[in-house]
Design a protein around this nucleic acid. Sequence first.
DNA 1: CGCATTCACTTGTATAGACAATCGAGATCC
DNA 2: GGATCTCGATTGTCTATACAAGTGAATGCG
Lengths: 243, 243
Amino acid sequence: MQRSNDSGTPKFAAIKEFILSQIETGNWPEHSRVPSEHALCDQFAVSRMTARRALQELTEQGVLYRTQGVGSFVASPKSQSALLEIRNIADEIQARGHFHSAQLVQLTSLPCPALVAGALGLNRNEPVFFSLIVHYDNQTPLQLEARYVNPKMVPLYLQQDFRYQTPHEYLSAVAPLTEADHIIEAVLPDEFTCKHLKLTPHEPCLRLTRRTFSRGGAVSFAFLTSAGSRYRLGGHLNISPTE
Amino acid sequence: MQRSNDSGTPKFAAIKEFILSQIETGNWPEHSRVPSEHALCDQFAVSRMTARRALQELTEQGVLYRTQGVGSFVASPKSQSALLEIRNIADEIQARGHFHSAQLVQLTSLPCPALVAGALGLNRNEPVFFSLIVHYDNQTPLQLEARYVNPKMVPLYLQQDFRYQTPHEYLSAVAPLTEADHIIEAVLPDEFTCKHLKLTPHEPCLRLTRRTFSRGGAVSFAFLTSAGSRYRLGGHLNISPTE
DNA sequence: CGCATTCACTTGTATAGACAATCGAGATCC
DNA sequence: GGATCTCGATTGTCTATACAAGTGAATGCG
């Protein structure tokens, strides 16, 4: 194929990355003008259709907005929720101007419970990695994250230090997310959850059960319990009751 | 512009509509093969780039899936939750093989509460339509739907009989959905909700607050409270805590 | 039979050019 | 000054073509 380099990266993808990097570093602030299709043609020595494709895809992802006869511009960062992005709780908390910290309660290998075995495609009692973390927003406990991880997909999971990097961050790096299941429930916290989130047993909680997949198969199965807070759902979603 | 007709419809859009119509009428069932780019070129007398664009956009919308070297195929209808589908609770219940019924508790015009006024872009105490409905799955109450509707967008709302047609069905018909906000919370039911959903005050509930828009502006603002059930979230979503 | 090779078909990336539609700014006219 | 016109810049649609890359089926060989 006609490629700008030997790394296998298509040219339009290289242009997208360039534009995204300019936005991320703050060089191109919100609502600032992005080079026109013609300018990108010159800059990257590509045809207009290729430059156009980069701008087009970024527009579909909500990174840019374009107006015929005027130009292309950087969109508001908040609408940049790409396709299968699952946000990192640390990023969320920092985006609100707060301080995120995490307390590692448990990090171990244990025999796989039946329910988890089914979800991750493992055999019952086969070893599975497990982490239990409390996420704090400033000094307030916000979320209890119980996560089972498939050792075949992520063999070095137990060696990580999750006080400095969330499991989500680490897993995103080693096993890029391709798919996810979600179930959301309203539950009352058990004694253990009450203790870690400093709740009373009558405060309702949202529990999000999330199973993530990467190219090779099921990666992790997580229970994210949050103190009765409100969550905004965005993106293209459908919501259906389960049996 | 080079156009296949004088209606102002671009050629690629005409091809998309053709493909969608074949799928909707059942002519092209799930997983069946869609004409190749080359075949569409001949059929519509367009260049390959134009035929390709139609297939491409339908793929991005989840209507088709394509594999290099193999072909393009009709995707599963369930993943056709494409852009902004919000399911109808009656359809959901019937999809589970159960019987849906609805009890109309209240249907009236009332002065707009402040919170609703902001959400719908109305003035405080200006009249707003309000409906309160209990949805049953077989004989079990499943969801309490409290909905405020913008009279400017849907002037005939109060004339409908919501025992036979859900508000969602009616609104979809008269004001096609273009956008929606969602907030999900875990709450304990108030006395009124307990009564209608036959709950005890200690059973946690999921409350989905949904604001819908059509082309002309905000259409409705609904509070959907469900007895502690589990909800499956699908589609491309992001979930973020609110302030 | 089992295996590798070849080949046709399909999708993916890219080019160079054309005309259409829209907008904004500057020039022109009254 | 204010309204109108023109024109350049920019994005939107489309063509015709080329080569790359993946798949699957047919073919040929040992």
